[in-house]
């Protein structure tokens, strides 16, 4: 195992603990919404994307059907398309291996592996996804098993964990004035679009602020 991979594992552990709590509330909510515990656990194992899982769950629980649920999850995950494009030049293997390596993209790993000059430390990215996957999976197992007992997870304020988690990543990215400016612009664009577009789209459109930011 190389040094960057080990550093990634170490950096991923705090995010893994926070992710454990988020997926615990996902597991509990899924079981309360009519998922079997097995379905909740399999979903976390094969999707591993919090915002998409919550979006798909809420649509199916409201009787919206599978296809709208899949599309809503896909829109939440559309940001991974931008992240994958950004990461691509830092991956040097053949196309099939690159496609597999792309599966390691989750928000914290991608943000932490970003060197700030447009390139990524790919081994660090792979490493930091490993503990996060374990945390995400095991949190769902606990939440799904205890879902009937836990009751409303909002009572414990667990819904505040998801934004705080991303705030932690964001603060680390705001070192220079230009980052702060584009972050503020991205936030404003995203909020302005919320009432008019399906969830997920505002985040993707906000990425356009990065292009505008470069022009300045």
């Amino acid at each position: 195992m190389n040094e960057a991979f080990r550093r990634g594992v170490r950096l991923g552990i705090p995010y893994s603990l926070a992710g454990f709590l988020i997926s615990l509330s996902f597991g509990a909510l899924a079981v309360q919404s009519g998922f079997s515990p097995l379905q909740a656990i399999v979903m976390s194992a094969v999707v591993h994307a919090g915002s998409a899982q919550f979006a798909g769950l809420s649509i199916v629980a409201a009787g919206g059907g599978a296809l709208p649920g899949i599309l809503a999850g896909g829109l939440m995950n559309a940001r991974f398309l931008a992240m994958g494009i950004a990461l691509a030049p830092s991956l040097t293997a053949g196309p099939v291996v690159r496609g597999l390596q792309g599966q390691a993209i989750v928000d914290p790993s991608w943000a932490l592996a970003n060197r700030g000059d447009g390139t990524f430390d790919r081994w660090q990215l792979f490493g930091s996804t490993v503990p996060q996957y374990v945390g995400w999976f095991s949190g769902t197992v606990v939440g799904a098993a205890a879902g009937g007992v836990i009751g409303d997870t909002d009572r414990f304020g667990l819904d505040a964990i998801f934004p705080t988690f991303f705030l932690g990543l964001l603060i680390a990215e705001l070192q220079d004035p230009r980052s702060r400016w584009v972050a503020a612009a991205g936030a404003a664009i995203a909020l302005a679009l919320v009432p008019f577009t399906p969830p997920g789209i505002p985040i993707l459109v906000a990425a356009a602020a990065a292009v505008v930011g470069l022009r300045r």
Binding site: S51, D117, G186, A187, L191, F196, P202, A206
Partner: peptide, 23 residues
């Protein structure tokens, strides 16, 4: 553009997850 992408995507995720519920 790639270098500016993390602050933008993360800021958008934070504000939409705090201040919005669906639309």
């Amino acid at each position: 553009v790639v270098a500016l992408m993390p602050p933008v995507l993360l800021a958008a995720l934070v504000v939409t997850s705090v201040f919005s519920d669906g639309q």
